[in-house]
Nucleic acid binder design. Structure first.
Lengths: 130, 130
DNA sequence: CTGAGTGCCCTAGTTGGCTAAGGCAGTAAG
DNA sequence: CTTACTGCCTTAGCCAACTAGGGCACTCAG
């Protein structure tokens, strides 16, 4: 899990997103336990309170449920919910990029070019051997 | 200029981005004066100090230069620099989206689908009359 | 029962961002 | 010169977000 303490985004929100993504990707599965507060705090080098705040948020959003003394578990439909959430988030960010680009005088076609280039270098045509 | 006081992004950075975009789009042209500290502060309903902080950053980045007693002006190649910066920013954000998507188990192809949908609803095939 | 684990809670403390109020120095038009 | 603008600087303080440390209640294997 990658945490950037110098980001403008609060640490606990970074953790929330990381866990949500992990649930979406199936790293943690429904009815399965997540890392304990202290374990995750140790791993990410942040305060246990901060992790708890992240877990609180995840519980509020319905991706996990907690059992005192036992641990935190992924809800039954947590994975589907997390996948939906991931798609909505991606859509939202792409909308923002398009909007910001338009303000700077760059049309959607221009953004598409950049997008193609980004995809190209992201997965450099996997399949060709040297 | 749209400022969201409840964003995680500091207000002065929001102003920086807005001005940079305006320079890129040609709203403010090289050798032209930007709104004065106090004028912009009044317009955006923030403290003049916050605006100054934004202007400091813009000057540090080389998009504008200040003349005491006269005002703030766009540098000679400010527009080109701002356009370059906008493209780099877009690229960076798209990279981030792709990376976040991958972590959540969504492949580039999936992101492209969402991107196409976003573009579709962003500029709904301008040209067809009802 | 005991002990080590768990989530939970409380109370501080720090920090960055922002506000506030004022003053100084420069420019330019009247 | 006077006036009204500019950018710039200083000091002080506020506030929310975030961090920190410690303690409590619960669960469960031994």
């Amino acid at each position: 899990m990658e945490i950037d303490p110098r980001s403008h985004i609060p640490i606990y929100l970074q953790i929330v997103e990381a866990i949500r993504s992990a649930i979406a990707a199936g790293v943690y599965r429904p009815r399965e336990a997540l890392p304990s507060l202290r374990a995750l705090a140790l791993e990410t080098q942040v305060n246990p309170n901060t992790v708890q705040r992240a877990y609180d948020e995840l519980e509020r959003e319905g991706f996990v449920y907690s059992q005192r003394g036992r641990g935190l578990f992924v809800t039954e439909d947590g994975r589907r919910a997390a996948q939906d959430h991931a798609r909505r988030t991606i859509r939202h960010r792409l909308d923002e990029v398009l909007r910001a680009a338009a303000v700077a005088g760059i049309e959607p076609a221009g953004v598409r070019e950049i997008f193609d280039a980004a995809i190209e270098s992201f997965s450099p045509t996997e399949g060709q051997s040297p």
